[in-house]
Computed example of a mutant assay.
Amino acid sequence: MSLTTNAADKPTLYKRIRADIETRILTGEWPPGHRIPFEHELVARYGCSRMTVNKALSELAQADLIERRRRAGSFVRRPQHQSAVLKIADIRAEITALGRAYGYELIHRKLRAATVADRDRLGVRKAGKVIAITCRHSADKVPFAIEDRLIDLSSVPDAATADFSREPPGSWLLHHVPWTEAEHTISAIVADERTADALAIAVGAPCLVIDRFTWRSARTITAVRLLYPGDSHRLVARFKGG
């Protein structure tokens, strides 16, 4: 059946459809793997032509927000991991996979208006709200990593009501908010008194530092710094020649 363009099919309608779907994805309302309504359902919902809906879905697919499967429909895309170093690991799953008992402690959580330093760290210009979180992960009751994280609430509003006293923020984000781009910076520092106390290591001991940023279609999701005791953690990546 062919649908003709009606009065509702204005040049910007497909952008509104795209924005509506994108917002549901970015807020985690539609998590990875969620099926997008079929084209005929979107046509009925927005009172437009199938061509308009198809254009919105095509742009979402080009932005890696959704994947379109022939005859099956469209689905929220799952993030693609590239290597051990580039992979965004779930620390809880990582520790469990080692056969060790996972422990988690929320040290600090604060919802606040973004400071200048927060905006610089997240790479955003507009003032908004963030959640600042500090937590500790342990393996067999031994400190494994300290996590210092900022979450941009304009991109992830549901994080404001998430219970991070029980679920680690990294695990929550991986299961609720799909990402399309990430950046890791790996460095090393020596532990100051505060870091040494948090990780139960000596002052001046080496620490591995991973600074990570994740985005969804150019919108910042989170910035996190992970500190690991340098003598008990390593990063491994395997590559194949092209």
Score class of each variant (00 low, 15 high):
A218L: 01
H176D: 01
T96Q: 13
C135E: 04
P11H: 02
S49K: 03
M51K: 13
A72C: 06
L227N: 08
L98K: 13
T27A: 06
D148L: 02
A84C: 01
I133P: 07
T214K: 00
H34W: 01
G204Q: 01
G230P: 05
Y102C: 01
A202F: 10
G204R: 04
K240A: 14
D64A: 11
V43E: 15
T214V: 13
A63M: 05
L235M: 12
S171Y: 03
R100Q: 15
L26A: 03
R78S: 14
I66L: 09
H184D: 06
T185R: 14
K15S: 14
A56G: 07
D197P: 02
I36V: 02
D90S: 06
S83K: 02
T23W: 14
A56Y: 06
K110M: 12
R166A: 13
T161D: 15
P32V: 05
D140E: 09
L122K: 00
R194I: 14
A188I: 10
T52H: 12
D120Q: 14
R166E: 12
Y104K: 05
I36H: 02
S217D: 08
H233F: 15
G47K: 05
A117Q: 15
I151P: 04
Y104M: 07
R69Y: 02
L60N: 00
A8R: 15
Q62Y: 07
E22D: 04
R119Y: 03
R194K: 14
G33W: 06
G230Y: 06
P143G: 09
P79V: 06
V236C: 04
T23D: 11
P178Y: 04
A202T: 10
E39D: 12
A159N: 00
E67S: 15
R70K: 15
E193Y: 08
C48W: 03
E167V: 15
R18M: 13
H81W: 08
R194G: 11
R216D: 00
H233I: 01
P206T: 01
